[in-house]
Design a protein around this nucleic acid. Structure first.
Lengths: 202, 202
DNA sequence: CCTACCGATCGGTAGG
DNA sequence: CCTACCGATCGGTAGG
């Protein structure tokens, strides 16, 4: 069965990428060696190079599926409604859900993008720019007055992403705060400030 | 003059730390070698080890003055007023001003804390915990209702720090947006949401 | 895919 | 005997 070999090949690559995500998230791309990765996968270092031609190629695969998922979530959030408040809430929930499920990959994306070769890094950066533009569109639809201040739409979009992206440094999967609650809080703070966050109190 | 030697010693250490901040910010702690640092300082690698016993000690000095400056700015913001809104604005401006002035050190603090030996890392983390506690105090003073939601004060504090800390990834010293404007925007968004940000439009 | 290696470079230290 | 370094090289390990 030729299909079995191909399926096994893909399964092995998936395991390498997923173990790499774990190691890179914990020690950084430069702090985790290919030997470490091989040991984590219980294979030889050469076996890793049978599936990937370079360490950077593994890093790219760690990031690629994650950024694609974010791109899809953003498109879905925009398509769900024409109401910018609903779009903001949908995007916040979609992103935080992915951040929670793919925490390692998200950490790697945020910490080690600069260790990609330029061509591959540019591919990721292009998608990130699109996500920033999407958020600028939502926020200026919510508050057209932002456009009267040079740089404000971009800055507001980055402050929003700061709130949700920064969660990877402190969010605890086993804590009382859920990704869903954080999505609500970030959206509420953007829409109405801290009072809106507190207004959710029982 | 015995004083001249000591003064020169301190000046040399300062130059090493400042060049290290630049290199570590750009390439990461592991991505910048002691040889790179020696070359940047135009001295031999052995000269670096005359002033510092290890690479990690240099990293610690890069972070130490920066986190101390943040600690001072937070204490000053609290002391300036008993009004929590004024305290929030003062802290936001104080921090963003330091982030702009010490951009390299801030990047290193946020990216390479895990590369410090445990004892030194704990010293920094202890100060960071204090800064988080300070922000929790300000935010719960602003909105006592936060305390009715388990985890909300801590989460709100981290969302605020996310907004201002994340700026190190995108803020451009030569752009139209200033650190002062970002401090206002982060404080406004926390206090009243996006509408408050847009309300500043001319 | 493994064992056995390479060119180079790592953080750190020797003698002078 | 000290300081402030230098050229050369240490034992190990990186990616390949």
């Amino acid at each position: 069965m030729a299909r079995t070999q191909a399926a096994d090949y893909d399964r092995r690559r998936d395991e390498i990428v997923s173990k790499a995500a774990r190691l890179y998230a914990e020690h950084g791309f430069l702090g985790a060696s290919v030997s470490d990765l091989a040991a984590a996968c219980d294979v030889s270092k050469s076996a890793i190079y049978h599936y990937y031609v370079s360490k950077e190629d593994i890093l790219f695969d760690v990031m690629r599926a994650h950024i694609a998922a974010l791109e899809d979530a953003a498109a879905e959030a925009i398509a769900t409604s024409s109401n910018p408040e609903a779009q903001l809430r949908a995007l916040a929930h979609g992103f935080m859900s992915i951040y929670g499920a793919d925490a390692d990959r998200h950490t790697v994306l945020l910490n080690d993008l600069d260790h990609l070769p330029a061509a591959k890094r540019d591919e990721i950066v292009r998608i990130q720019r699109g996500l920033i533009g999407t958020m600028e569109g939502i926020l200026t639809a919510l508050e057209p007055g932002l456009k009267d201040r040079p740089g404000a739409p971009r800055a507001a979009a980055m402050l929003f992403y700061g709130m949700i992206n920064w969660t990877h440094t402190w969010f605890n999967q086993n804590g009382v705060v859920t990704t869903c609650m954080l999505a609500d809080m970030a959206a509420d703070m953007t829409l109405g400030g801290l009072a809106a966050v507190a207004g959710r109190a029982a």
